[in-house]
Amino acid sequence: MKTKLMGIALTLTFGFVVIAMAQSQSSSNQSTGTTTSASAATPEPSATAANHSAPKPETTKATAKKALTPDQMYKANCTRCHAEIPTMDARRTATIVKHMRVRANLTEQEARAIFEYLNK
C-alpha cells in the first residue's frame, strides 16, 4: 500500500513536470522568441499585477547586466510567497510594503521599486 501510494506521488510529480514542460513548449512557440527569461515568466501574478504593463523585451548583452526592472523585482520578491495580491490604494500599499521590507528582507531599493510598480 505504502509503495503504491509513493508510486502515485511520484507519478503525480512526473505528470506535473511533463504538463509544465509541454505548456512551456507551447508558450515559447507562441512567443516571438525575443523576450527575456524574466519577462517571459508569468508565475500568475495578482489581478493587480496582471493590469500592469510588462517590461519591454531586452535582448542585448549590454542590457542583460542591468538592474532588475520594478516588474521583475515584484515577481522575484512577492510572487514566490503570494500567489495572489489584492489591489489597494497607494497609502495602504505604502504601509504594507514597509511591513514586507522587514518580513521578507527587502532592500530599500526593492521596497521603493515594488511600491512604484504597484502604484503605476
Partner: peptide
C-alpha cells in the same frame, strides 16, 4: 553595486492598516 542601481522615489507616507 549600489552605484549601478537605478534610483526610485521615496514612497509616500502610509496610513495605519488593519489587515
Amino acid at each position: 553595486g549600489s552605484a549601478q542601481a537605478p534610483q526610485y522615489k521615496k514612497p509616500e507616507s502610509g496610513v495605519p492598516v488593519l489587515t
